[in-house]
Amino acid sequence: MSVLALEIGWGWMLAFKALVILMIVPLGALVLGYTFLLKMMSHMQSRLGPMDPGGFHGWFQLVGDGLKFLQKEDIIPEDADRRVFAFAPVVVVISTFLMFVVIPVGPVAVVANLDVGVFYALAVSSLSVIGVLMAGWSSANKFALMGALRAAGQLIAYELPLLLAVVGVVMQAGTMSLQGIVSAQQNGSIFGWSGIGNPFIFTQIIGFLLFMIAAQAELSQTPFDMPVAESELVAGYMVEYSGFRFLFFFIGEFGTATAFAALAATLFLGGWSLPGVHGLSAELLGPLVLFVKLMGVAFLMFWVRFTYPRLREDQLQAIAWKFLIPIALANIIITAIIKVAF
């Protein structure tokens, strides 16, 4: 059954998994940054700059951006708490790495198939706010501090709808394991018709919308990008960072976007599963299927990001507590009733 780990010992397997995880975050950030930030945004906003470097469609732009970050001077403010300041970007990226541990890309291709996979993924995703708070506090900058505090407030407000949105899925699947949720969708049926399985986006459409809104807030993307708010706080908690430390935040931001898109694809779109594909072909096609689904979800996220203005901090809190959480609770109750009734 196990194709990849057939002849490979336990230690080698672990090393291989760690390598994949280490690769996938910068790679995901690169792909998303290139596709959406540089190409889609340039098309949407009639930008000429990112379409130019390198000739064909501006393919060199991302390389140029990366090189630019690397050659910049590494500046640490004099009043900064140096160790915390230096460690904060790492914390942000680590939380992204940890999220990928439980996301399955095939029937067996998962680093760790935890029984509490969803719970774990959402829990470690909020670790990044610790890094943000560290960055904001240690920068010795008022703008950074305000940005970090906004991020903390946002996290508290949006972690709840995010979790509650997922509860519906968990109830329907009957498991918290992501692998279990995928197979529940693959083997499910819509009113007896099991042609495409039962992607939970149909039954949990409210949950999906809530999840996307809350994820947008978790990622601090527009319309919930108050922690970075270029026009007010300049760049919020990132204001004092330069060079590769800033690049870390950038990778963290887009890596987390990849992780959340993958999570949404797994929870609501069936993850790696493709109708009618089983066995070895599923193992091989799985990563590709998940990638396509992930890009679809990410497209939605970034489309919203490039279209909407930013909400105000109090409006954000009002939306979270007055609308999203009640709707999420109602969604859970309805799901429970239907689950018990049918």
């Binding site: 009639s46 527009t222 909407y308 203005p309 930013r310």
Partner: peptide
């Protein structure tokens, strides 16, 4: 004005 309330796109349309 769009840019200042957080929407990046209108700024480019305005300049264009």
């Amino acid at each position: 004005m769009g840019l200042q309330v957080g929407a990046l796109t209108p700024a480019f349309y305005g300049f264009r």
